[in-house]
């Protein structure tokens, strides 16, 4: 379990102070994957560096399984860091080492006996699907293979926590998918606690159980994926279930509706259309399964002159979130 509380990082640039992290708090329970999304400049990189104490936070604490990192020094800090496995955007493998030697690196620094290092490195490479690549140098591997070696290396010290810093941002879509599946699989199999920092919403949708939105150094929205997605109108919901921009046709009232779970599978719209004898127009829609829950986000338009009140009331009664987007022009 990772607990971050009130983490602040202030950089001094001459006489100016730049607040990179402004009181970030979060908790990731064991066995789950938490995503942190944000645009560049939101403080993601600073957060990663502060979590691993590569940069010392100005204030606040980071603890992993109850052991506090932020107050540790030298030997204690090194011991605490060994509980963290980290995956980087560009894998950051040593070019002078073969795949197996890269995986062995974290084991060498704690002076593991040579024989067990070799066995463990082979086993980890097999785990990430790179059997037979032990003697390949990073320059002979593709981007996805390098990232797999990076994952194997991160797991070498049997960490409790896996920290992923933009793990797929340098990969193509197909490879991204494969790496995400691998991370998800490993999380379940090894009961890891995973923190994924990314700017790609796709990564959040694909593997995360919960998510935080970072903006200007603060967590502005957070929660389990299914809850934030169901919160119609929130920034996270809008980016998780995006609607293409579409011009309304004519002057009918435009409604934005969001349904999830059971109501997503029931034919609510056509029932409403029949009940109120209205022709409903779907302007835009996005239907997706997030965290194993079906979500639908639609923009619909009522016919000109129709009164939206009863329809809105009916839909809300069915457990659907509704927002009246545009009032009928007078």
């Amino acid at each position: 379990m990772i607990t971050v509380s009130d983490l602040r990082k202030v950089y001094r640039q001459g006489s100016r102070e730049i607040v990179a992290l402004d009181g970030v708090s979060l908790q990731v329970p064991k066995g789950s994957i938490h995503g942190i999304v944000g645009h560049s400049g939101a403080g993601k990189s600073t957060l990663v560096r502060c979590l691993t104490l590569l940069d010392a936070p100005t204030s606040g604490t980071v603890s992993i399984n109850g052991a506090e990192l932020s107050s540790a020094h030298d030997a204690d800090l090194r011991a605490a860091r060994r509980r963290i496995g980290m995956i980087f955007q560009h894998a950051n493998l040593m070019d002078s080492r073969t795949a197996a030697q890269n995986v062995a690196h974290p084991l060498e620094i704690v002076r593991t006996p040579k024989n067990s290092i070799r066995a463990k490195a082979a086993e980890l490479l097999k785990l990430v699907g790179l059997e037979g690549f032990e003697d390949a140098y990073p320059s002979q591997l593709s981007g996805g293979q390098k990232q797999r070696v990076g994952i194997a290396r991160a797991l070498a010290s049997d960490p409790d926590v896996l920290l992923c810093d933009e793990p797929t941002s340098a990969l193509d879509p197909k490879t991204t998918e494969e790496i995400l599946v691998l991370i998800k699989e490993l999380t379940e199999r090894l009961q890891l606690t995973v923190l994924v920092i990314t700017h790609e919403m796709h990564v959040i949708k694909r593997i995360c159980d919960s998510v935080s939105l970072l903006e200007g150094g603060r967590v502005v929205e957070h929660g389990p994926l299914r809850e934030v997605a169901a919160d119609l109108g929130s920034n996270l919901s809008r980016t998780l279930l995006p609607l293409p921009a579409a011009e309304p046709l004519g002057t009918g009232v435009v409604l934005e509706i969001l349904f999830s779970g059971d109501s997503a599978s029931a034919p609510i719209l056509s029932t409403a259309a029949r009940k109120f004898d209205l022709d409903l127009n779907v302007l835009a829609g996005s239907v997706e399964s997030l965290a194993d829950v079906q979500f639908g986000h639609l923009r619909i338009q009522l016919p000109e002159g129709a009164d939206p009140e009863p329809v809105v009331g009916y839909l809300r009664g069915q457990g659907v979130s509704v927002k009246v987007a545009g009032k009928e022009a007078a």
Binding site: T52, L54, R78, A79, A80, R81, R82, I84, M86, F88, H90, N92, L93, M94, H105, P106, I109, V110, R153, S157, L163
Partner: peptide
């Protein structure tokens, strides 16, 4: 030497 490699080694707990 890319500083990312040094970061990776630091996070491993290297002296």
């Amino acid at each position: 030497v890319n500083s990312g490699k040094i970061d990776a080694a630091l996070v491993m707990g290297s002296t």
